[in-house]
Amino acid sequence: MEVIGYMIHRSEMVQRLFLEHLWLIVVSVGIAILVGVFLGVLISYFKFLASPVLTICQVLMTVPSIAMLGLLLPFFGIGFQTGVIALILYSLLPIVRNTYSGIAEIDQAIIESARGMGMKDYRILFRVKLPLAFPVIMAGIRTATVMVVGIGAIAAYVGAGGLGELIFNGISRTNPPMIITGAIFVSIIAVAFDLLLGWAERAKTIKY
């Protein structure tokens, strides 16, 4: 009851932080998709780069989020941008790895017949490889997004805004309704993204 009371009482602020959080995720994941798919495609052509790139992404993901933010702070300062960069680094691994393995799993006969017919490499990439790897890439994006929604709450620590503010302030003021409100809305965003991306994954996947 107390929590609902708090939500209604501070609805304007909660709404603002909710949208801030959403924006933080959309921007971070959006950039991570561009960078991640690019890297995944790149290492599918230059196989010797695959192992180092994937290892770096994996190491990045194991850095505790507080430490990551602390390390980025001196370079990027307090604010939104530092939060975005941290979230991009966290979401790279699933996207790069799934792009790479999605392309690697394609039946080689399909690629060979495309080459044999005289399709140019970039056409094979955009017309054959990426569409066929799409479900796998999408699964990676989904994993990354859901994961980053939670980590996004900690980004409030470096002044990136979002629902993390409710949680941090709630802790320092020993205000449980505030903490719970923050946590509930973070979960709502995570579940919503999971459902939405899961639906997109299925809708665009052709059964064969």
């Binding site: 006969a109 690629i111 017919m117």
Partner: peptide, 16 residues
């Protein structure tokens, strides 16, 4: 390659 038809055993049709 465009001037040479190419058919392989696995066919390699584009499933999508």
């Amino acid at each position: 390659r465009r001037g040479i038809g190419y058919v392989i055993q696995e066919i390699g049709l584009f499933p999508h």
